[in-house]
Design a protein around this nucleic acid. Structure first.
Lengths: 216, 216
DNA sequence: GACTCATGTTACCATTGGTAACTTAAAAAA
DNA sequence: TTTTTTAAGTTACCAATGGTAACATGAGTC
């Protein structure tokens, strides 16, 4: 009975949760987090705004879901990129910021919630926090591998990791907020420029004096 | 007639504009930009929420004013710090990220609006954009001075500047969003750790192979 | 002392996030 | 097959918010 099925599809959306996450991310990428409203979002999904509360306990919980979703997706991308590289530890380390950047370019809405939006300390962000920690562990392990292989200054890695995380995240978010335009040479592709800058930075860190990174 | 003066002071606030900026910045630092409402803010200043519209055309315009105010303050701090250093170009360059960081630690509310909040492309942000450009020019000039003095790899400076801006901004905003806690050694003062990491990064950039930073 | 105008106020509006109570239809139990 | 349960929608409603319009106050000027 196709008529019944059509009506059913109309009433029960089928995959409202994922649809809402995707739509919200797109809106955030376009107009920022302040702009989007649950009602407009629900309307776009063909549903009443109250239906959203079946899947997210609040507007902020939807944002938290986007953050968790983003970290999981990022982690999958990072792991896949590393797996394709075998045992070249330095290449495996370098691919992390590159993946991070591609993720930012591909999913700016997710990225914004993950890094520029202030998470409430509510429990709704617990999942996101856990996913974030796992993603960070990947970097930590990669740096340790490089140190063990003599590819990076040995000793406490905190400052080295902080510097790598810093330059990666800094370039990504400066670009996302449009503040890299002033620096970037005209007519260059942004992604290439950023990735080359990143690689240069990592290389500078790699060959630097190990004493630089020791805690004083 | 002190009674009349008191009434007058009650009616005409005196300096509502600056008060609102300060209060808003404090609230944003505490609870994020999403939380603060014009009504609560106005109440805190002892005024009706409609009074805010005498000074800011909208809520977003208040945020824009905070951004412009922040860039101006940052620029003053940077210029002062540099002036105290004479002609030591490398020290003058290094003091910029340090000032940037201290500003972030001292005025996190301003910092958040300046760097983590998405500016609408409305004209209300014009002032902020102009102030931002001036602040950036300071860095550009300082890098050029260092290059002229042979203290930094010569040639196109875009990538070098991008890397410096990136690591500075990245560390600052990672710290602000609490994401540096996982990296930072326990029981260390955050500001010292970040500044030392920054100096190490800049030093690594300084002694690096100039070819790294040339455009390919 | 009257006039002006910046800076407040009250009254009001549409929109928003969120809750309560009800409805629909798909899946499980009989 | 029929009945029951339950996940996933709906309508009706609420208090709070950003914003507008029309009015009030009072400090400075002629």
């Amino acid at each position: 009975m196709p008529a019944a099925k059509a009506r059913s599809a109309a009433y029960h959306h089928g995959n409202l949760r994922d649809t809402l996450i995707a739509l919200a991310s797109a809106r955030i990428a376009e107009a920022g987090v302040a702009d989007f409203t649950l009602r407009e979002l629900a309307a776009e999904a063909g549903v009443t705004h109250v239906a959203t509360y079946r899947h997210f306990s609040s507007r902020e919980a939807l944002l938290a879901a986007i953050a968790a979703d983003g970290y999981r997706k990022l982690q999958v991308l990072e792991a896949a990129a590393q797996d394709a590289l075998g045992a070249d530890h330095w290449a495996r380390l370098l691919v992390l910021p590159e993946t991070y950047l591609r993720f930012m370019l591909d999913m700016p809405g997710h990225f914004h919630i993950m890094f520029a939006h202030r998470w409430s300390d509510d429990a709704i962000y617990d999942e996101a926090v856990a996913a974030q920690a796992e993603s960070f562990a990947l970097l930590e392990r990669s740096v340790a591998d490089c140190q063990a292989a003599g590819l990076l200054p040995a000793g406490g890695a905190s400052r080295l990791i902080a510097a790598m995380l810093g330059v990666t995240h800094g370039l990504a978010s400066l670009w996302l907020s449009g503040q890299l335009d002033i620096v970037m040479p005209p007519r260059r592709r942004a992604d290439r420029f950023i990735i080359e800058t990143l690689k240069a930075s990592f290389e500078a860190f790699r060959v630097s004096d190990p004493d630089l990174w020791r805690n004083k």
